[in-house]
């Protein structure tokens, strides 16, 4: 494990570079294939509406995968992530157009722990709503 960020160089409140991630229907079909999650709420608008959703929604695990990229791009080596957890609070709604939806992710160091570890709290939004809650990673820095 070779994190490019040093523990001594960060403080509580240090912000990680924010990123935004586009997600279209095509993204969801591709993620369904790669992950093996073929639940039709992620690709079939008729089915999604029949079960009470406003439209097709992104896989929660897709959103979780995007959010941690703010951390892994920061550390360089994804092996720096020692814990990662989220709560799925709101769906990311993905309309059937060329724009789709956007997942906006920001993060900051919330606590410095022992053994060169820090806790990073992530804020994950789509269409102005917080889509993940309690989104936290423990990361071991250099």
């Amino acid at each position: 494990m070779t994190a490019k960020i040093a523990y001594d160089d960060v403080e509580v409140g240090t912000e990680l570079p924010a990123q935004s991630f586009p997600v279209t229907r095509a993204t969801l079909v591709q993620y369904a294939g790669a992950s093996g999650d073929f639940n039709p709420i992620h690709w079939n608008e008729k089915f999604a509406k029949e079960v009470g959703l406003p439209d097709v929604i992104a896989h929660g695990m897709f959103t979780m995968a995007e959010a941690i990229r703010v951390v892994t791009d920061w550390t360089g080596d994804p092996a720096a992530v020692v814990e990662y957890g989220v709560r799925f609070t709101k769906p990311v709604i993905v309309p059937n157009d060329d724009k789709g939806a956007t997942i906006e992710v920001s993060g900051k160091v919330a606590a410095k722990l022992d053994d060169n570890k820090v806790r990073v709290d992530l804020t994950v939004m789509s269409a102005g709503l917080k889509v993940l809650g309690m989104s936290r990673a423990v990361v071991r820095l250099a």
Partner: peptide, 21 residues
């Protein structure tokens, strides 16, 4: 590729080895 992450540690064995994997 499906999550759009181009970090070479996921695709290039040499890049992974450079980080000790």
């Amino acid at each position: 590729v499906a999550v759009g992450d181009a970090n070479p540690v996921y695709t290039d064995p040499e890049a992974a080895k450079a980080l000790g994997h």
